[in-house]
Amino acid sequence: MRQLNPLERQGEALRYPPGDLAVWIFILAELSVFAIFFAAYAFTRMQHVALFDQYQATLDRTSALYNTLALITASYFVVRAVAAIRENRAAQSRNWLWAGVGMGLLFLVIKGAEYAHHFAEGVRLSTNTFYMFYLSLTFFHFMHVILGIIVLAVLAVRTGQGHYDAASHTDIESGASYWHMVDLVWLILFPLVYVMH
């Protein structure tokens, strides 16, 4: 059955990834949107290399670093939450999920400060093509972080209420996969928008 932990059958690989297949289809759809956005960024940059390089330099790479570390850490916490529920340790699983939520919130705060800074400088979507992409891409991702945090929080509450155990925790696996997707996208976004030139 699908609830089974992939590790319990290490010999024979699974046909489907952990979590609900419907969620994975959703993840694929989301990844496609981001892929198009990344490609659009890169190909538009071809026409405006100097402009992109110039304004990329105005971004705060160190904030982005903290944010990357926060998301990776959140992902790791979520991995621990899944591992814990697989061993029937629901309370621990819940705590790891809350820890993941905390890291997500940290991301929002840092990113929010970055936005505040840019807006204070008068940067808008129409300022130039680079800022248009920077704001669009990061904000679209920002919305995903918010959604991911909501998912994790709901899972944490439900885990605390004893809805999941080692035999049945597909929801946690689904939510975890979604969160990893949010992390994965940022791992591309960070070098692409902040570093590569």
Binding site: V33, I36, F37, A40, S126, M132, F133, S136
Partner: peptide, 9 residues
């Protein structure tokens, strides 16, 4: 103009 991007994507 950014709508051309948002709309398209």
């Amino acid at each position: 103009e950014y709508w051309q991007w948002w709309g398209s994507v």
